[in-house]
Nucleic acid binder design. Structure first.
Lengths: 219, 219
DNA sequence: CCTGCAATAATTTGATCAAATTTCTTGAAC
DNA sequence: GTTCAAGAAATTTGATCAAATTATTGCAGG
């Protein structure tokens, strides 16, 4: 177990941890991120931390200000419009590609994840909802195989995630989007376009939530 | 002049140089990129080089293999299909946004750049064509202001660039795409949809060139 | 053909230097 | 006498480098 852990390099682990902090963790939009603050929290040197920050900045998950500071970006209305457009074109296409390569094992796995999403919603557990919702989408997308669109989807979620988290925390998990049932039904009947449509609807609902919160000034 | 240069950090300069080497330079698809090879060529320590490589890897311009090697990625047919889809949806939208905020000064600037594109094609100067073609597209896109779509367009060009360069070198600049005239005409008459359509056509032509070369096994 | 060793290159750490922000002090004006 | 502002010093944080460590690959020898 430590044998396996030793094989994967520190900067990779650090990247994964910082990424998850942005997606699911405590880092909120506008919050500053410092190298030395992170070297203290995670127990590593500053080079791996530095790399992780630069990598996430390149993916749009962090925003380097002109002076050498870095923060979690705050989504403006214009940003949200662009992220929404990109997500609504990229992710349904990805879902469609994945649906073409679907297997019974995948459907089973997705069904299991979706059950955990439902449980999280019923229990009003925002953190569990966010993680399992993410897991559902990417278990599906990854079935399309590696490629540009998958990379873009990951980047878009990193931009969208923090805002969705803030919104979810305020409104509770019960009002969160979930068109997963329709996506699963379409997959079972081999309807790739139907899967894409369901994902499109799911994304649209999430975007609407964030847009409404943005207009109310909650973000 | 050295005063200005001192203000911008080494890793930023290194990133820009390595990025241009991938887009316009000598780095071909499949070619390995090593930290120590670059510290020798560019005259810096390894930390800035390391950062530049990681940043470009995050943008998809470089491909980290499982072992600690990094190479310029080779575009597969599947990759090309995904890049084409993404470019054809993202960039026309970006052009449309930019067209909404167009100014006489911008049109003048774009006209000047396009003249240099034409000159490069007439002179069969592949390198000058690539740089000015890039400059034309991004001078237009940047008029839409900073944002997600612009970041995505930059990343897509980094993925597409090396292959287009290989194709151009083999076929000569005379057969290269250029729907810039139509885009400029549409901008002058305030026709945002027309600009988007022209850019769509321009991208489609470039993609067709690369696809044909790929099928002939030239890449 | 498999195993071990050597060479090469990446990873990581700690130290040092540079820059930016904040805080404290000093002076002037009301 | 008090308050505000400007400037300087100190602290915090980022950038860069050089050295030590670790992993991978290729080659040689059994």
């Amino acid at each position: 177990m430590t044998e396996d852990a030793r094989k994967i390099p520190t900067h990779e682990v650090t990247y994964a941890r910082l990424r998850d902090m942005i997606l699911f963790g405590v880092l909120e939009p506008g919050q500053p991120v410092t190298i030395q603050g992170l070297t203290a929290g995670l127990v590593t040197g500053m080079t791996p931390v530095r790399e992780a920050i630069r990598r996430l900045a390149a993916e749009g998950a962090l925003l380097p200000q002109g002076n050498r500071r870095v923060t979690v970006p705050r989504l403006t209305a214009s940003d949200l419009a662009q992220v929404a457009f990109a997500r609504l074109t990229i992710e349904p296409r990805l879902a469609e590609l994945a649906a073409a390569a679907v297997s019974p094992a995948l459907i089973e796995r997705l069904t299991a994840i979706d059950a955990r999403v439902d449980a999280a919603i019923r229990a009003d557990d925002v953190s569990a909802y966010l993680q399992n919702n993410h897991a559902f989408h990417f278990a599906l997308y990854e079935a399309a195989g590696p490629g540009v669109l998958l990379d873009m989807a990951r980047s878009l979620w990193l931009r969208f995630g923090p805002s969705l988290r803030v919104v979810s925390s305020k409104s509770g998990a019960t009002s969160l989007p979930d068109s997963h049932k329709e996506a699963l039904a379409a997959m079972r009947s081999g309807d790739a376009a139907g899967v894409a449509a369901a994902i499109h609807r799911d994304i649209g609902q999430g975007v609407d939530q964030v847009r409404a919160a943005l207009q109310r000034g909650e973000i």
